[in-house]
Amino acid sequence: MGILNKIAGFFINAFIFAWDFGLFILNILTPSLKPGHVVPAHAAGHNLTWPEYVAPKEGDSRSACPMLNALANHGILPRDGKNISFKELNTKVRQTFNFAPSFCFFVPKFSADFLNRSYWTGRFDLAELSLHNAIEHDASLTRQDAALVPDQGKPDPGLVEDLLKEATGKTSDGSPLLTIPDLSRALSKRRIDARRTNKAYTESLFHNIFGSSNSSTMLTIFGGRITDLTPMLMEERFAENWEPRVLSRFGLTMAKFNGTVLPVEFGVKKNASKN
Score class of each variant (00 low, 15 high):
Ser102Met: 04
Ala147Trp: 05
Ser188Lys: 07
Pro176Trp: 06
Tyr119Thr: 03
Ala147Asp: 12
Ser61Ala: 14
Thr168Arg: 14
Glu166Arg: 07
Ser248Trp: 01
Arg117Met: 14
Ile221Thr: 10
Pro150Gly: 10
Gln144Lys: 13
Pro51Leu: 08
Lys199Trp: 11
Lys269Thr: 06
Ser140Ile: 05
Ile192Cys: 09
His37Arg: 15
Lys6Ile: 15
Met232Phe: 01
Gly22Phe: 06
Asp20Leu: 06
Thr91Gln: 14
Glu235Cys: 13
Thr230His: 04
Pro78Ser: 07
Lys57Glu: 13
Asn116Val: 11
Arg225Ser: 00
Thr142Met: 02
Ser248Arg: 00
Lys82Tyr: 02
Asn73Gly: 09
Thr230Val: 11
Ser63Met: 05
Asn214Leu: 06
Ala44Cys: 14
Asn73Ser: 06
Tyr53Glu: 07
Leu126Pro: 03
Ser204Asp: 14
Phe238Tyr: 12
Asn83Val: 01
Ala167Tyr: 04
Lys6Asn: 12
Asn13Leu: 12
Glu88Thr: 09
Ser172His: 15
Asn116Ile: 09
Arg117Phe: 00
Asp145Trp: 03
Phe24Thr: 13
Ala112Met: 07
Met234His: 03
Ala186Ile: 00
Gln95His: 11
Phe222Trp: 15
Gly9Pro: 11
Val160Trp: 06
Val268Pro: 08
Ser102Trp: 10
Thr121Pro: 11
Leu129Gln: 00
Glu136Ala: 00
Leu187Glu: 05
Val261Asn: 07
Pro78Val: 09
Ala55Phe: 07
Gly174Ser: 14
Asn13Pro: 10
Gln95Met: 04
Leu115Arg: 02
Ser212Phe: 07
Ser212Met: 01
Gly169His: 05
Phe114Asp: 00
Phe106Tyr: 11
Leu219Trp: 11
Met218Gly: 01
Phe257Glu: 10
Lys274Asn: 14
Ile16Cys: 08
Glu203Leu: 08
His37Met: 13
Val107Pro: 05
Asn73Glu: 04
Ser61Arg: 06
Phe21His: 12
Lys57Pro: 05
Asn98Lys: 14
Thr230Trp: 04
Ala255Trp: 10
Arg94Asp: 02
Glu265Leu: 12
Ser216Met: 08
His46Asn: 14
Arg123Tyr: 13
Pro150Ala: 10
Gly223Ala: 10
Glu265Tyr: 07
Met234Gly: 05
Asn47Cys: 06
Ile7Phe: 05
Phe103Gly: 01
Asp156Glu: 12
Val149Asn: 07
Ala200Phe: 03
Arg245Val: 05
Gly75Thr: 05
Pro176Gln: 08
